[in-house]
């Protein structure tokens, strides 16, 4: 059981939890993640420690409320409550080397995972520019980025009337690709890093590819155990089957089979929708 020390809404749908988890805080490296189970009948979901204090033994997780589990956490968990399970750290650390000028792109909520990696890259002597592409009200961690890296850019946009998730994600992909193209055309970068929805990452990759700059992508396939025992998170990288939880989550973007990944992350969309609808019904007392 892992106590919630602090909980805060950073922006619409973005909830920050500071959680007592000394076993993770002691060991976690930028790029690694945890698997969280919040409720007795709950599922296991992967989340990324955004900040941590090794001595005090806490980690910060920021969830984006996108379905039943994240919504239930937002609605039902209070400071002082406990999260049932926080397993980790899992996965491999991101490559923290001296690349030179780095562009680190966070697409939508992917920005929370960019934070620890970008900060470590800057500390390792890189000149890091971070770019956050999201709907305007969802600008988060602006001050933290500004303090930690050379330059932070927020590329926001207004959500148009009648837009659903699909349109918003498409806009993130479009804007992300456009802004990256602009930056790469005007300046020299040695390394690009992205985190975010698979479709938007692919759109950014297609731009980076034109410039031939090395690119590292943190992938978000569906996970269950996170320890390499099931293969739910398998991805094709360089023609080989890899398990993102133990071989990744970060891979060379040039080797990833993006279309396969996009198919796989959508496999449970109908059931995810149903779980959320049933939960909303129960909230309304139906």
């Amino acid at each position: 059981m892992y106590r919630i020390l602090e909980k805060k809404e950073l922006a619409p749908k973005h909830i920050m939890y500071r959680i007592e988890a000394p076993h993770v805080a002691r060991k976690v490296q930028p790029g690694q993640f945890v698997i969280v189970r919040a409720f007795p009948n709950g599922e296991r979901i992967p989340l990324t420690p955004v900040m941590w204090d090794r001595e005090e033994g806490w980690i910060v997780l920021i969830t984006f409320v996108r379905g039943k589990t994240t919504m239930r956490m937002a609605n039902e968990l209070k400071p002082g409550d406990s999260i049932l399970n926080v397993a980790g750290p899992l996965g491999n650390p991101a490559p923290i080397e001296k690349f030179g000028r780095v562009l680190a792109v966070g697409l939508s909520a992917g920005i929370v995972e960019v934070f620890p990696i970008a900060k470590a890259l800057q500390e390792a002597g890189n000149d890091v520019t971070t770019l956050h592409v999201a709907p305007a009200p969802m600008a988060i961690l602006k001050d933290e980025f500004t303090e930690s890296v050379s330059r932070h850019i927020f590329e926001g946009f207004e959500i148009q009337e009648g837009w659903g998730t699909k349109e918003i994600v498409a806009e993130i992909a479009r804007r992300g690709a456009e802004k990256v193209k602009e930056l790469l055309s005007e300046e020299n970068f040695d390394f690009v890093l992205t985190v975010g929805p698979a479709g938007a990452q692919k759109a950014v990759f297609n731009v980076v590819k034109e410039f031939g700059i090395p690119m590292h992508a943190d992938l978000h396939p569906i996970m269950v155990d996170g320890t390499g025992m099931c293969g739910s998170c398998r991805v094709t990288v360089g023609g080989e089957v890899k398990f993102a939880c133990i071989d990744g989550p970060g891979f060379d973007a040039y080797k990833v089979d993006w279309d396969e990944l996009i198919h796989r992350v959508g496999f449970y969309t109908d059931l995810e929708k149903r779980a959320l609808e049933e939960y909303l019904k129960s909230l309304r007392g139906e």
Binding site: F39, N41, G42, E43, R44, K68, T69, V224, D225, M229, C230, G231, S232, R234, V235, T236, V241, D257, E260, H263, R264, F267, L271, R274, A275, E278
Partner: peptide, 28 residues
């Protein structure tokens, strides 16, 4: 890697450990 292809470990973990046969009462 087509959708709908499970390893037995994933399938059985979802069903047994996560009780996916009781979805949506259980979340997995």
């Amino acid at each position: 890697n087509l959708n709908g292809i499970y390893t037995a470990n994933e399938f059985l973990t979802r069903v047994n450990l996560m009780k996916a046969y009781l979805f949506p009462e259980y979340d997995t």
